[in-house]
Amino acid sequence: MLDKNKNFKTRNHDTPIINERIPFPEIRLIDPHGDQMGILSLEDALKSAKNAGLDLVLISNKSNPPVCRIVDYGKYKFSQEKKAKEAKKKQHSSNLKEVKMRYKIEEHDYKVRINQALRFLQASDKVKATITFRGREIQHTNLAIELLQKMAKDLESVAEVQQSPSRDGKNMVMILTPKK
């Protein structure tokens, strides 16, 4: 057995290695129906694939011996691309959205900010709630903390606090993440 096959890596992660490009002398072969045919030499596996009018595709080089399968390469490549596309659809990268306000915000404006944050959280995005201070307003950090805590309480059914209210220069910041 070769010890090199454990460290073997494909040139391009997207394209599988097929037929004569497979560098292993012995492989574990799976037939087109998904049944194991056992451990064979590469030459015997290639003959079996040619007799079936199909290709020999390297499925996994992590095991010892590596696993190959007899398949129609065109169909195999199509199904792999389709699986990758489906996986990409299901993936949602969580963005950080920001909701800005002042500590002296009016009730209607506060509700608008709550609705914005709610929309962001329902879209699986994180929300950064920022209260900006101007001039001497920085003395009223306790009012800003109370407002952010009120916001967290109003959104507690859909969000959890990732970062509690903290001062960041002339701002007070809190980060909320969607509940799972």
Rank of each mutant, 00 (worst) to 15 (best):
M1L: 07
L2C: 05
K4Y: 03
K4F: 06
N5V: 00
K6F: 14
N7K: 09
F8G: 01
K9Y: 11
R11I: 09
N12L: 08
P16Y: 00
I17V: 15
I18H: 00
I22H: 05
E26N: 15
E26G: 01
I27N: 02
R28T: 03
L29D: 04
I30L: 12
I30A: 07
P32I: 01
D35V: 06
D35S: 08
D35F: 08
I39T: 15
D44I: 02
L46F: 14
K47L: 11
S48H: 10
A49K: 06
A49I: 13
K50P: 00
K50T: 14
N51D: 15
N51H: 09
N51G: 01
G53R: 04
L54A: 01
I59D: 12
I59K: 12
S60I: 04
S60K: 06
K62N: 05
S63R: 12
S63T: 15
P65G: 10
P65D: 10
V67N: 03
C68E: 01
R69S: 11
V71S: 03
D72K: 15
Y73E: 11
Y73A: 12
K75F: 05
Y76G: 02
K77V: 03
S79Y: 14
S79T: 14
K82C: 05
K82Q: 13
K82Y: 14
K85H: 15
E86S: 06
A87W: 15
K88F: 10
K88G: 05
K90N: 14
K90L: 12
Q91D: 01
H92Y: 12
S93M: 08
K97R: 13
K97H: 08
K104S: 03
K104R: 09
E107A: 10
E107I: 10
H108Q: 07
H108L: 01
K111I: 07
K111V: 00
I114F: 15
I114N: 11
R119W: 04
R119M: 09
R119V: 01
R119P: 02
F120L: 04
F120I: 01
F120S: 03
Q122F: 04
A123G: 07
D125E: 10
V127C: 09
A129G: 03
A129N: 05
T130Y: 07
T130M: 07
T130L: 13
T130D: 07
T132R: 10
R136I: 06
R136V: 07
R136Y: 05
I138Q: 13
H140F: 13
T141K: 15
N142C: 04
I145E: 12
I145G: 01
I145F: 07
E146A: 05
L148C: 00
M151T: 11
K153W: 07
D154C: 08
L155F: 04
S157K: 12
V158Q: 06
A159R: 02
E160I: 14
V161Q: 03
V161K: 02
Q163V: 12
S164A: 13
P165I: 00
R167I: 02
R167L: 06
D168K: 14
G169D: 11
K170Y: 09
K170E: 08
M172I: 03
M174C: 01
M174H: 04
I175A: 09
I175T: 15
L176T: 06
T177S: 14
